[in-house]
């Protein structure tokens, strides 16, 4: 019996967005008299943190505290159109739409403040704590709550903005496949370290090194959630998951979370994750989408690590103990 150790590599890219189908999303931003700004969307948060990203981008653009942003989303009566949450498009499309809407709202806010403070709007700035102030002055300022009240009850001004992201739809050229299917490419390189039990074919993933180039991590803690949750899913895809364990034979399809195999908390690999940022020209604050890509590189990295460990080349997913043991048996028979 031997526990064999191996390391494998994989490097991938992943497209942001789906403009083979036309890919618009809208956002509306308006101030209420509480000084809060409501971001209205119809986009869905799947747990990846879209609402948080929308609030961060709105706060940054408006120059106001994060706490002043309310995200009201996923009601088709109250939120403007969004294609949906898929294709790693949420941060990119919603982010861009929110920036556009927040910029317009910010202009309206500064104009209202200029009227109230009797100065020129171009001379105003936000300080990030809720005040709009005259550049270089400590006295000439107004808090956003006072401004919102004044705008509504005194100035008769709305503080609101509209935003949309639309990338023109691309139609593939049928003969050559010439097309513009995406808005940006994010990148990743994964290194997997595994052991293989040469008597049972059981693989243990010891360590995953995850390097991601994401344009801009709007929220690094949530980017880590995507990277490490996705790395876990990649391990799961590589070694465990399928709805048809005897594909193409349809028998023994798993019915619940016991039969549908995924690694449990006891099976976790150690994770080391690094983010590189090369802002994308068309991304919100440079962000690209990473929601989907994080499960991809781990799969071949693990396949290659298994080969490195024991010489078995896996060409069919998932890499079950059986497939590895059959490979080992074949190698032994050949030797």
């Amino acid at each position: 019996m031997a526990i064999l150790r191996g390391r494998g590599y994989a490097a991938v890219n992943y497209p942001t967005g789906m403009n083979l189908g036309g890919d618009p999303t809208q956002a509306l931003v308006h101030a209420t008299t509480t000084g809060n700004f409501v971001v209205s969307l119809s986009s869905v948060d799947l747990g990846q943190g879209l609402k948080t990203v929308a609030a961060q981008v709105a706060a940054e653009t408006l120059g106001l505290p994060y706490e002043n942003i309310i995200v009201d989303t996923a009601d088709t009566d109250t939120g403007p159109h969004c294609m949906g949450t898929f294709a790693s498009r949420g941060t990119h499309r919603v982010g861009n739409a929110v920036i556009m809407a927040a910029q317009e709202a910010r202009e309206a806010m500064l104009e209202a403040a200029a009227e109230e403070l009797e100065v020129d709007a171009a001379d105003l700035e936000t300080d990030g704590t809720g005040f709009i102030k005259l550049k270089g002055s400590e006295e000439k300022k107004i808090h956003v709550v006072d401004l919102a009240l004044a705008a509504h009850f005194k100035l008769g001004r709305t503080i609101a903005g509209r935003g949309i992201f639309l990338k023109e739809r691309s139609y593939p050229e049928p003969e050559t496949g010439k097309m513009d299917p995406d808005s940006a490419q994010a990148h990743a390189c994964t290194v997997a370290e595994v052991t293989v039990d040469d008597e049972t074919g059981v693989v243990e993933v010891l360590h995953m090194y995850n390097v991601y180039e994401v344009g801009r991590a709007i929220n690094p803690a949530m980017a880590r959630q995507q990277i490490e949750g996705g790395a876990w899913m990649g391990v799961s895809h590589a070694l465990y998951e399928t709805t048809e364990p005897y594909y193409p034979v349809r028998e023994h399809g798993p019915r619940d979370f016991e039969e549908y195999l995924m690694p449990g908390p006891a099976d976790n690999a150690q994770m080391t994750s690094e983010i590189i940022e090369f802002p994308a020209a068309n991304g919100p604050y440079g962000a690209k989408g990473i929601g989907e890509m994080t499960a991809n590189a781990p799969i071949p990295a693990i396949a290659n690590a298994i080969y490195d460990a024991c010489g078995v080349r896996l060409t069919e997913m998932p890499f079950t103990p059986e497939s590895i043991l059959r490979g080992l048996d074949e190698l032994r028979a050949r030797a």
Binding site: Y240, E258, E259, L261, P263, G264, A266, D267
Partner: peptide, 10 residues
């Protein structure tokens, strides 16, 4: 007991 994951598996 050999199982597909370290805990909670048939």
């Amino acid at each position: 007991k050999a199982m597909r994951r370290k805990q909670n598996s048939a």
